[in-house]
Computed example of a mutant assay.
Amino acid sequence: MNFTTKVPVATYAYPIDYSSKLLSLGSCFAENMGDKLDYFKFQVKTNPFGIIFNPVSIDRLVDRVINQRLFTESDIFFHNDLWHCYEVHSELSHPDKDTFLEKLNAVIKTMNHQLNKSTHIIITYGTSWVYRLNSTKEIVANCHKVPQKEFTKEILSPEIIQQTIQNTIDLIRKVNPDCRFIFTISPVRHIKDGFKENQRSKAHLITAIHHSPFAIHNYFPSYEIMMDELRDYRFYNDDLLHPSQVAIDYIWIRFFEHYVDSKCFDTMQEVCNIQKGLTHRPFNPDSSAHKQFLVVLKEKIVRLQAKYPHFQF
Rank of each mutant, 00 (worst) to 15 (best):
S222E: 02
I253Q: 15
I248H: 05
K196N: 13
T207N: 13
Q199C: 07
N167H: 15
D238K: 09
I251M: 05
K174H: 13
K149Q: 15
S201H: 14
K174Y: 12
V146Q: 08
I206H: 01
E154R: 15
Q245P: 02
K137L: 14
D249I: 05
H217W: 00
M226T: 09
T136F: 05
R200N: 10
I191W: 15
V188L: 09
N198R: 02
N167W: 06
S244M: 02
D249N: 13
Q163F: 09
F256H: 08
R231A: 06
I182M: 11
L230C: 01
A203D: 01
I139Y: 03
F235N: 01
I139R: 00
N142V: 03
A247S: 09
L230I: 07
D193S: 12
H211L: 12
P147M: 01
R132I: 14
R234Q: 05
F214E: 11
E159D: 14
K137Q: 15
I209G: 08
I253Y: 10
N142L: 10
I209F: 05
R200D: 04
Y236R: 00
S244D: 04
E150N: 11
F195N: 12
N134R: 11
I206A: 05
D170H: 14
R132C: 13
E257N: 12
N176G: 03
H211Q: 15
Y233S: 09
Y223R: 05
F181I: 04
E138M: 08
F151M: 02
N134E: 12
V188H: 08
P177L: 09
I161C: 10
E138D: 14
A203H: 07
P187W: 04
H258D: 05
L241K: 12
G194M: 13
Y233P: 02
P221T: 02
F214S: 04
I191Y: 15
W252H: 00
W252F: 08
V246K: 13
Q163N: 14
P187V: 01
S186Y: 03
D170A: 13
M227G: 03
K149E: 15
L230R: 01
H242S: 07
E229H: 00
Q199H: 05
S222T: 10
S244N: 10
Q199Y: 02
Q162W: 01
G194Q: 11
S157K: 07
S212K: 00
A203I: 06
T164C: 09
M226Y: 05
F151A: 03
Q148F: 14
K149C: 14
R180H: 15
Y219C: 08
A141D: 06
D170V: 10
F181N: 07
V140A: 07
W252K: 07
H144M: 03
P221N: 03
D228N: 11
S244E: 07
I253R: 14
P158I: 14
P243Q: 08
A203Y: 06
I248A: 09
Q162A: 10
I161H: 02
N237W: 00
M227A: 09
I209D: 01
A215Q: 03
I155F: 09
F220A: 04
F220H: 03
I169Q: 11
N134H: 07
T184N: 02
F195Q: 14
Q245V: 10
C179L: 01
H242C: 10
V188N: 04
K202F: 05
E159H: 12
L133M: 12
F255P: 07
T164N: 07
P221W: 01
T136H: 06
I160N: 13
R254A: 00
I216K: 15
V175Q: 04
D249W: 02
I206L: 12
D232E: 06
N237Q: 15
G194F: 13
